[in-house]
Nucleic acid binder design. Structure first.
Lengths: 204, 204
DNA sequence: CCGCAACTGCACCACAGGTACAGTACCTGT
DNA sequence: ACAGGTACTGTACCTGTGGTGCAGTTGCGG
């Protein structure tokens, strides 16, 4: 802990993430990463046993960062309202704003990228990926449960599906934004999800 | 036209699509494709100038097949109801059923795959990809416009965003299904989009 | 001055993508 | 019957680079 956490490893991961999200995992060469970071090939293999190990680290780091954003946004929203519905609606608005403020739009979701490379990785990486999506479901399901305790839904909906819808809209919105080249599309989709939640639960 | 359309080319594309969707484009080798189809390397290069050319063909073929499904489903729905809202709701239900009936779930969306490989391809491929998403927007926007002519929306929504939401839910739902390994998630998400449309426009 | 973390340098191989061509089997129009 | 196109096969060859192993080095904390 006396060490400031080896930053070379972090630099490699940062470079790898950007490359993987724009060209795919296999097309991301180790040579290119070490050139960008300024280390030797052996230096790379000191930090990562092999390329698959890099993939796992990349995925775990992405999920961790993602969770931190969610934690922060939900905490902030909870401070602004005690009501579970209003807090959730505030959180979604804050989240939309976070994505809107990213200067070049959302760079891409590693979970989605891994999904479209699944046969390249071992069972463990795929299982980490699945666990991440299920943890998002659990997080949103928890919020929605508390909303449903207080507000009668206007239509009958499965609450797991409603929770999953966030992940779907998120990953789908990222793809939309990237493909069309319009970074406003992701936040707009999140706000549409917010409208749906409001229509389902808000009696007003 | 007397020829039954070279089926070897189609076999290559079929094998390539399955491989690309599960391992990514770069990890899909020409050697592996020709082994599966049972042709020689020269045979491959007779059909495709290079690998990029294969990618373009793959994308164009996917978009074409996708459009055909949409055409069929919307035509079927139009026969069942003259009302634009009801026809749209029927179409979404039919579409959910189409995906539910796929024995192994949706194999993946080439548009999304290309999106996560963009730097690998030239401007033309990326432009084809963007055009596909915009054509989905136009298709759904057309339907939604007709609904909005007859039904006053319960909340104020941007109709382009509402149209885009289908693409987002579709691509996001595919990822969800693939990652969690539950093929029911995609159709469930489509039905949730249907619920949203109903809540927005249906006065009942 | 020991020992560990964090590297560098070098050698190596398999294999993928791609090129170049010559040859062949079959079908079609004239 | 034969000219010519389509749809290939076979062979040879070249380049780049991904992935790996391992021996050696540097610098810093204790």
């Amino acid at each position: 802990m006396t060490k400031p956490t080896p930053q070379t490893r972090e630099q490699i991961l940062e470079a790898a993430q950007a490359a993987v999200l724009t060209k795919g995992f296999s097309a991301t060469s180790i040579d290119e990463l070490i050139a960008e970071v300024g280390i030797s090939k052996s230096g790379f293999f000191y930090h990562f046993r092999d390329k698959t190990n890099l993939a796992r680290a990349l995925l775990e780091r992405y999920i961790e960062q993602d969770d931190m954003v969610f934690d922060r946004v939900f905490a902030e929203a909870d401070e602004l309202s005690e009501d579970p519905l209003h807090s959730f609606l505030i959180a979604l608005k804050l989240l939309a704003k976070v994505f809107e403020d990213l200067p070049n739009g959302h760079p891409g979701c590693i979970v989605a990228s891994v999904c479209y490379h699944e046969q390249l990785f071992d069972q463990e990486v795929r299982s980490i990926n699945a666990k991440a999506v299920l943890s998002w479901r659990a997080r949103f399901r928890g919020r929605i449960d508390k909303i449903a305790e207080r507000y009668e839904p206007r239509i009958s909906v499965d609450l797991d599906d409603l929770a999953d819808m966030f992940s779907a809209i998120g990953d789908g919105g990222i793809i939309l934004s990237k493909v069309v080249g319009d970074r406003s599309l992701l936040p707009k989709q999140l706000l549409l999800y917010r409208d749906f939640i409001r229509l389902v639960f808000d009696p007003a």
